[in-house]
Deep mutational scan, measured.
Amino acid sequence: EPLWIRPDAPSRCTWQLGRPASESPHHHTAPAKSPKILPDILKKIGDTPMVRINKIGKKFGLKCELLAKCEFFNAGGSVKDRISLRMIEDAERDGTLKPGDTIIEPTSGNTGIGLALAAAVRGYRCIIVMPEKMSSEKVDVLRALGAEIVRTPTNARFDSPESHVGVAWRLKNEIPNSHILDQYRNASNPLAHYDTTADEILQQCDGKLDMLVASVGTGGTITGIARKLKEKCPGCRIIGVDPEGSILAEPEELNQTEQTTYEVEGIGYDFIPTVLDRTVVDKWFKSNDEEAFTFARMLIAQEGLLCGGSAGSTVAVAVKAAQELQEGQRCVVILPDSVRNYMTKFLSDRWMLQKGFLKEEDLTEKKPWWWHLRVQELGLSAPLTVLPTITCGHTIEILREKGFDQAPVVDEAGVILGMVTLGNMLSSLLAGKVQPSDQVGKVIYKQFKQIRLTDTLGRLSHILEMDHFALVVHEQIQYHSTGKSSQRQMVFGVVTAIDLLNFVAAQERDQK
């Protein structure tokens, strides 16, 4: 057995438009009618409502009807409940999964919650491996369901041993009777949507819809739904939504950006999952974080739909894509998950301010006199920076000697690579993860907040409520011999709460 199987392995699926269902090699399930009293909570997966979006479509000038398939009504709160249950049931049916076995899954959280929910009911041990950027709410729900959680670096490539995929496979090879159901490759993922989600949409719309818009992560949702719609409703256009920084969209030119990270969760990847059939997507749109969270908040405030950030991405694209539809036509959007997962993220004004998705003037509360002053007023001194090749031991000596707790790590040209902190280095040394002679590049981390000289002290204040420091950066445009230009970030300084307090105190003292 291989040590790991690539999540982007070539698909062996034989589905073709027009091929009889009787030739399918898979076990198919028909939607079942729910009894009045459910035998367990797993029976509350599927049969989610279709809700008309009344205000947002009109606000953006849509002539067509805009409908939302509300997947956050599933038992675990997301569309991923469907595939989690289906993968477990299919693994039980073919004898792969037996009582007492362990389920391991690399996930952005929602599939993990679905699997942990099913594992709690069915009696399996469950280990979820997820990147650090995923919300604390997801972690809390997983723990409450009895799952064990392993976190991995957000910026690790999918084929790196440190990625959530790599760590999951390492655990599988170490733990007896453990299984990775593997949402990236498992046919049960798109089949769950082909058999149930798509049929529900067709039934709820009486077979009449002209466009379907869905955000894409593993691709199982859009693949399964689109294949069924292509068979039953061939005139329906399928629109895929991919965040900026991901590479799922086609044509490839759409993916060209210097951005590699994004805040919206559960969609987009740096590889093409095996289950994603991009041939059934008629057109791709890219979405960005700001519009995703703005539209998610709009869905909550104006439509009462308590959905997550990827739902915002989907609707932001839908109001663009559906401009081509006329009166009497219908566009369906998939709202994948609930706001429950993001209470401390985009639902929080403070978080939105820190990330730059909300401006101070958007909030009406009274601010102190210094709130709208610029960061450049602080008069920061030149920063202490270190090269990635310097040793951890030497870096600790320098920081202690100069009285700093942290320093930016830059390359020879001064471009920011990340940050090192005294606390992080000492804990890594004590844990045996690094040696004093190791290069400081081994303990770089990139989960820090950046701020510009033109940003306000109010925004800085919000950042420092949650973080010990902020890195002050400025952009530099560099022209190359080819005539092309590129933008790079340079370090201007490091600012802490002490710097802000000293500035405010000094100004008030001078005024007296």
Rank of each mutant, 00 (worst) to 15 (best):
G240D: 09
G240T: 02
V241W: 02
D242S: 10
S246C: 07
I247T: 10
P251A: 05
L254P: 02
Q256N: 13
T257S: 12
T260S: 11
T260G: 15
T261V: 05
Y262A: 05
E263M: 08
G268C: 04
D270C: 05
I272G: 07
I272R: 06
T274E: 04
T274S: 07
T274L: 07
V275K: 02
V275C: 05
D277C: 05
D277S: 05
T279I: 10
K283A: 09
W284P: 02
W284N: 02
F285M: 04
K286D: 02
S287F: 08
N288Y: 14
N288M: 02
D289M: 02
D289T: 02
E290P: 12
A292V: 07
A292D: 02
F293G: 06
F293V: 02
F293I: 04
T294D: 05
F295R: 06
A296N: 06
R297N: 02
R297H: 02
I300C: 04
Q302P: 02
Q302D: 12
L305D: 02
C307A: 14
G309V: 02
A311G: 02
G312Y: 02
S313H: 05
A316M: 05
A318G: 11
V319Q: 02
V319W: 02
K320D: 05
K320C: 08
A321T: 09
A322P: 04
Q323G: 13
Q323Y: 15
E324C: 02
L325H: 02
E327Q: 11
G328A: 02
Q329Y: 09
R330D: 14
C331M: 12
V332D: 02
V332G: 04
V332S: 02
V333Q: 02
V333C: 08
P336K: 02
R340L: 06
N341W: 02
K345W: 02
K345V: 02
S348N: 11
D349F: 02
K355G: 07
F357V: 02
L358F: 10
D362F: 12
T364W: 15
K366Q: 15
K366L: 12
K367L: 11
K367Y: 09
K367M: 12
P368C: 07
P368M: 07
W370V: 09
L373M: 08
R374I: 13
R374A: 15
V375G: 04
V375T: 07
Q376I: 04
L378N: 04
G379H: 07
L380R: 13
S381I: 15
P383Q: 12
P383H: 02
L384N: 12
V386I: 13
V386A: 11
L387C: 09
P388W: 11
P388Q: 12
T389S: 09
I390E: 06
G393S: 13
H394V: 15
H394W: 02
E397V: 09
I398Q: 07
L399G: 02
R400M: 08
E401A: 15
E401L: 02
K402P: 15
F404D: 04
Q406N: 08
P408V: 05
P408R: 02
G414L: 09
V415Y: 13
I416M: 14
L417Q: 10
L417P: 11
L417G: 12
G423M: 07
N424M: 10
N424L: 14
N424W: 15
M425T: 13
L430E: 15
L430I: 14
L430A: 14
G432C: 05
K433I: 06
K433T: 10
V434P: 11
D438Y: 13
Q439T: 14
V440Y: 06
K442C: 13
I444E: 09
K446H: 11
Q450D: 14
R452S: 08
R452G: 11
G458L: 02
R459K: 14
H462W: 15
I463H: 15
E465A: 09
E465T: 02
M466S: 12
M466V: 13
H468W: 02
A470F: 04
L471G: 15
V473C: 15
Q478N: 13
H480E: 11
H480F: 11
H480K: 09
T482I: 09
G483K: 15
S486G: 10
Q489L: 14
Q489S: 14
V491R: 06
V491A: 13
G493M: 02
V495P: 15
T496I: 11
A497E: 02
A497F: 05
I498H: 07
L500I: 15
L501V: 11
A505C: 02
A505G: 11
E508G: 14
R509F: 13
